[in-house]
Design a binder for these strands. Structure first.
Length: 302
DNA sequence: GACCAGGAAACGA
DNA sequence: TCGTTTCATGGT
């Protein structure tokens, strides 16, 4: 058996399960306390041991910045949480529930494509679509251990060569033409994803919004999960629901008012606040393993 | 079997 | 400008 190589990355307060199961990424597998997935074409298995993340790859590695960048292990989480609005008891409750939850830094294309596929889909279904797409049209990746075959997420160039029918065979439905259109624009060089990171937030967002099938929510997911835009704040149905419930009980707020509140209230790391709120709701509703084990039905919180 | 999902676009008033 | 409908699919 090829032992590959391992590295131990010192980091405090890193909850791999919360992070990898919080709806940022969709193709990670848990077996016991370890998680495995593909980062930049490399299979990797992760485990938290004490105050460190231990990583094992199938192939020897010359350097590991591809992984530390993805995991954002250099980020001082306590400093970020200290920037959260102190008097916000809802957010503080979420911080207690989800301690160690982190934001990852994903590949922009994989992130954009994944969230184009996420529209009105449950996270379990997004996982299935992403998995099918990778298995059929991605590149096989040497994986360690369990003998399971893994595949990289297909590049924009790979997807741009496919047909809408082929994409629909991955069960993505009406999202197929959106994904195909985005892939073709990126592959043709009409949208430079690497350059977006050098723009101010509003301009980067505007560039993403030009894509068919990409609205404010999906654009903000990409800006937050794939770039250094910590104030991006994706508002999905669940987050909108709790924002109204927590901060505007029995009071009408339109979308613009909600956005103004978000910008004013949550501060420089609003995106982190959002991820804590989002994951907290999912834990409370039994969507994902957390400190409490509930089996709440699939209905909205009161 | 109804309801809904990490939405967005097209449509109608 | 704002509410409503449509889109495809499957988990619960």
């Amino acid at each position: 058996m090829n032992p590959g190589t391992t590295i131990t990355v010192p980091v405090t307060a890193y909850d791999l399960s919360a992070t990898l199961a919080s709806g940022q990424v969709f193709d990670w597998e848990q077996h016991g306390s370890t998680w495995s997935g593909v980062v930049q074409g490399r299979w990797v298995e992760l485990q938290v041991v004490g105050d460190a993340v231990v990583a094992r790859t199938a192939a020897p590695q010359r350097e590991w910045t591809w992984l530390t960048h993805f995991l954002q292990t250099g980020v001082d989480l306590s400093r970020i949480i200290a920037s959260f609005p102190a008097g916000d008891r809802h957010l503080q409750e979420a911080v207690r529930t989800c301690r160690g939850l982190r934001l990852l830094r994903q590949d922009p294309w994989e992130c954009l494509a994944s969230f184009i596929l996420s529209a009105t889909k449950q996270i379990v279904q997004i996982r299935q679509i992403v998995r099918r797409l990778s298995e059929r049209y991605g590149e096989p990746v040497a994986a360690g251990g369990d003998g399971a075959r893994r595949f990289s997420f297909p590049s924009a160039e790979q997807i741009a060569l496919l047909t809408e029918v082929e994409l629909r065979s991955c069960k993505m439905g009406f999202r197929a033409p959106y994904l195909l259109g985005a892939a073709r624009r990126v592959a043709a060089g009409n949208l430079d994803l690497a350059a977006l990171g050098r723009l101010p937030l509003p301009e980067a967002r505007a560039a993403l919004l030009q894509l068919e099938g990409v609205g404010r929510k999906i654009a903000d997911c990409v800006l937050l999960f794939a770039y250094d835009f910590p104030e991006a704040f994706p508002v999905d149905v669940w987050v909108r629901r709790v924002l109204r419930q927590y901060y505007f009980p029995n009071r009408h707020v339109d979308e613009a008012g909600l956005q103004r509140f978000i910008h004013r209230h949550f501060g420089p790391h609003a995106g982190y606040c959002q991820q804590y709120l989002f994951h907290h709701i999912r834990v409370v509703n039994g969507k994902v393993a957390g400190r409490t084990t509930t089996h709440a039905p699939n209905r909205k919180p009161r």
